[in-house]
C-alpha cells in the first residue's frame, strides 16, 4: 500500500481524538471539580495506541497477482486471506473520494457473483489502480465463465 494511506488514516485519527480529548479535558472541570480533567486521559492514551495499530494494520495489507487468481491478505488481530479466481470476477471498480484524491489514493474493489466476497484494496496509487483494473478486466475476460 502507499504510505499516503497510513498518513491519511493517522491524520483522521488525530482529527477525531484531539478534539475529543480537548472536550473531555475542558468541559467536565468547568461543570464539576478539576479532578474530572482526568477524563481526557483515555482519548490521549488511545492516540499512541491507535497510531501504532494503524501502522501495524497498514503493514499487514498486501496483494499478489498470481497466474489464475488474486490474493489479498490483511489484518493483524483478525486476519483474512481472500482468493478470487480471475474467471469469477464480474466487475472491477476503482473509487476515489475527495479525501482519497487529496492524498493521491484510489480504492479498488472486486465483485463476484457472491455478495460475501470481500475483496477490496484501499490505498493504491491511481496509476497502479488503473493498471490493476485493466489487467484484471483483461484476465477476467480471458478466463470468464458463466455462473
Amino acid at each position: 500500500m502507499e504510505p499516503a494511506l497510513l498518513t491519511m488514516r493517522r491524520l483522521l485519527l488525530v482529527c477525531w481524538l484531539a478534539p475529543l480529548a480537548l472536550a473531555a479535558g475542558v468541559l467536565p472541570p468547568l461543570l464539576g471539580g478539576p479532578a474530572l480533567a482526568l477524563l481526557a486521559l483515555p482519548p490521549l492514551a488511545a492516540l499512541p495506541w491507535g497510531w501504532w495499530a494503524l501502522g501495524r494494520n497498514w503493514a499487514s495489507w498486501c496483494y499478489l497477482e498470481r497466474d489464475d487468481d488474486l490474493l489479498i491478505r490483511r489484518g493483524v488481530m483478525w486476519q483474512q486471506l481472500t482468493v478470487v479466481p480471475y474467471g469469477r470476477m464480474q466487475l472491477v471498480e476503482v473509487t476515489s473520494g475527495p479525501l482519497d484524491r487529496r492524498f493521491g489514493l484510489a480504492r479498488l474493489q472486486l465483485h463476484t457473483a457472491a455478495a460475501a466476497t470481500d475483496a477490496t484494496i484501499p490505498g493504491l496509487a491511481p496509476a497502479e489502480a488503473e493498471r490493476l483494473r485493466d489487467r484484471l478486466t483483461e484476465l477476467g475476460e480471458a478466463r470468464s465463465a458463466g455462473l
Binding site: 483478525w78 486476519q79 486471506l81 478470487v84 469469477r88 457472491a114 466476497t117
Partner: peptide, 14 residues
C-alpha cells in the same frame, strides 16, 4: 460454483 475463498482467524483462534 466457488466464487471466492477466504481464510480468517481472530486473536483467540490464532
Amino acid at each position: 460454483k466457488v466464487q471466492s475463498v477466504r481464510l480468517t482467524r481472530g486473536p483467540w483462534t490464532r
